[in-house]
Simulated scan of single mutants.
Amino acid sequence: MSHYFITGATGAIGSSLVPVLLQQPTSELTLLLRAETADKLNERLEELYRFWGIGSSDQAARQRIRALRGDVTLPEFGLTAHEYKALCAACTHIIHAAGNVRMNLPIEQARRSSVDSAKHVVALAHAAPKLEKIEFVSTVGVGGRTYRQVPEEWLTDRRDFHNTYEQAKAEAEELVRGEAERGLPVTVHRPSMVVGESASGRIIHFQVFYHLCEFLSGQRTRGLSPRFGGTRLDVVPADYVAKTIAWSSQTSASGGLILHSCSGPTLAVALVPLRERVRAAFSRAGRDLPRMVELPTPLFKAIVAGVSVFMPTELRRAVRTLPVFLDYLATEQTFINQRTQELLAAAQLPVPHPDRYLDKVLDYYLERSR
Rank of each mutant, 00 (worst) to 15 (best):
P25Y: 09
L224F: 14
G99T: 06
R316M: 02
H205M: 04
E46D: 13
F300L: 10
Q167V: 00
P19F: 00
M292N: 07
G223V: 04
V269S: 04
L175F: 06
A38I: 09
E181I: 13
P265G: 06
H82Q: 14
L329A: 08
E294R: 13
L366W: 10
E276Q: 15
R291H: 11
G183M: 02
R356I: 02
I303N: 04
L32Y: 04
E152S: 01
V194L: 04
R44H: 10
G196M: 02
R158N: 15
V176I: 14
M311I: 01
L22E: 11
L315S: 06
F282T: 07
V150S: 03
L68S: 09
V319A: 07
I94V: 12
E135C: 12
V150D: 00
V351Q: 00
Q149G: 01
D359R: 00
L131F: 09
G230V: 11
S117Y: 03
V293Q: 04
R190S: 01
R50F: 11
G196Q: 02
L267M: 08
Q167T: 05
L271C: 04
C88P: 01
T221C: 06
T244L: 13
F161R: 02
F335P: 06
K119C: 08
R145M: 10
S254F: 01
E83I: 06
R320F: 00
F228W: 12
P129V: 11
Q167P: 00
R177I: 02
Y147Q: 07
E47T: 15
E132G: 08
V186K: 08
A281Y: 10
G264T: 13
V186H: 05
A38V: 11
M193I: 15
P129L: 05
F206L: 07
L322N: 03
